[in-house]
Design a protein around this nucleic acid. Structure first.
Lengths: 266, 266
DNA sequence: AAGTGGTCTAGACCACTAA
DNA sequence: TAGTGGTCTAGACCACTTT
């Protein structure tokens, strides 16, 4: 088990960047200049070993680097491919649900589904409902006791054209939604929002946005490629008496979303 | 070079997750439950090899996984440490500069410096001014010709207690700020904002937020640890005639910022 | 069955940091 | 100078996908 650098005596290695950086740089260049277009397959690792005269491990380090930069995706048994770019969807968060457009075409769709449909793509939501002790941050927003109180959790995976796009978890105080359609694990919608149709009108939102790396669970649920950060958007909705009605936590992968807000002097 | 799984005959490995996933899971758990608090040093890779009875490569795969999740930082010759978390500063983007509080204590401070000072910490801004061809997205917001037109760029590195915190680049149409204090490479402030003091009042903002991994240049300027995503916040300010006055691009590292917005039915 | 990437071993030398 | 992580080799078996 000899180190090739000293055996081959080719170069002192000193002063230059590591070999797998160089290989990654070269491949990155080929991706950038279109020599390796999105969707194309790279040579097998075995071939790259020959081409660069390095061990398989070094090839894998180089590829891992590009996977981490979000440029490649690798699949066991399939091969390594240049990553295809998502078309990001732009989402305007400064629109109140109660004021969003409700054309006939939007009937039966919530705000998100309507926005996606408008781009000619196919939205889909998988919903599950449960009663949980909410996370501390959510309990605080809802003025709940973080230990004793429970909330209704509507958990959604939102997909576009069969590809998972975002996670949206809504928490409601139990007494507000008990026995309503919101307790049913299916896609529900109503003009102005389902809450509004129950007489619970949100007149004000408070939003908090944080940026972080996804958790393992989020990576799995959203099939996220490596090196994809997420925005965590937490929106609390209040009625006209400043009573919190709902907290919605949305997980938005950075590679497929743009958030916008419009702010004006009232 | 034998594969230990078959030699030791311990287990068929089948059906279970890979060893380095398991090791990463265990370490992640110790970080989560406080057994490995932020800032603490992990055992050396050599020690982890002994503890888990695996090769160094497998240990490194496990550690790399946690580095990629932003939980660990490793330094050559120093060791591997549980990452310290910054105290995030909360920044309310739904306040118009022209309406922000201007108490006597805030005199001479801009909105950002005032917010930092309020938390008892020491803000600092390093400013440079130049005339540049703006990026395409900025030119579009300013209704400029993306090739021919130039803009004044005020580039700031904002630091708190000597630690770089964010980058804020403001672009102005040249004719608006020619010969004003905004052309001077120093920290300037005025009640209601410097633009307002020039008779240029922003009555409306349009914000676009994207989430991504930082570029190499941003990593260097902000001394970002690995696996730190950033929010890129682009704000365009308009006057009462819907004329764009300014585009400000802020780069906010995810580990030290929370963004908030308040949205209401006017 | 062939080919691909995924996991893992056992060892070596290098580069950096701190005592 | 001792100890740490960073780079690299040479080889093996496993799991998955495609033909």
């Amino acid at each position: 088990m000899e180190q090739v650098g000293s055996v081959a005596g080719e170069m002192p290695v000193n002063n230059s960047s590591p070999r797998y950086h160089q290989i990654a740089d070269e491949l990155r260049g080929q991706i950038a200049n279109g020599e390796l277009p999105p969707g194309s397959q790279l040579p097998a690792e075995h071939d790259l070993m020959d081409r660069y005269a390095v061990s398989r491990n070094t090839v894998r380090l180089a590829l891992k680097r590009l996977v981490d930069e979000g440029l490649l995706v690798a699949g066991q048994g399939r091969g390594t491919f240049v990553r295809e770019r998502y078309e990001p969807i732009t989402w305007d968060w400064s629109v109140l649900e109660s004021r969003s457009a409700h054309t006939p075409a939007n009937r039966g769709l919530d705000q998100w589904a309507a926005a996606v449909t408008a781009t000619g793509r196919q939205p889909r939501q998988d919903v599950s409902v449960s009663i949980v002790t909410p996370p501390a941050k959510v309990a605080e927003q809802l003025n709940m006791d973080p230990v004793a109180d429970v909330a209704v959790l509507r958990r959604r995976i939102r997909s576009i054209d069969q590809e998972p796009y975002q996670l949206a978890d809504s928490y409601f105080p139990v007494d507000l939604v008990q026995g309503t359609p919101l307790m049913e694990p299916r896609d529900v919608a109503a003009p102005g929002g389902v809450l509004a149709s129950l007489g619970l009108v949100q007149v004000r939102y408070h939003d908090e946005i944080t940026v972080r790396m996804p958790t393992r669970a989020e990576i799995d649920r959203l099939s996220l490629p490596a090196a994809t950060p997420v925005a965590e958007h937490m929106r609390t909705g209040y009625d006209e008496n400043d009573r919190p009605l709902r907290v919605m936590v949305t997980i938005l992968p950075g590679d497929r979303h743009v958030l916008t807000y419009d702010v004006s002097a009232e």
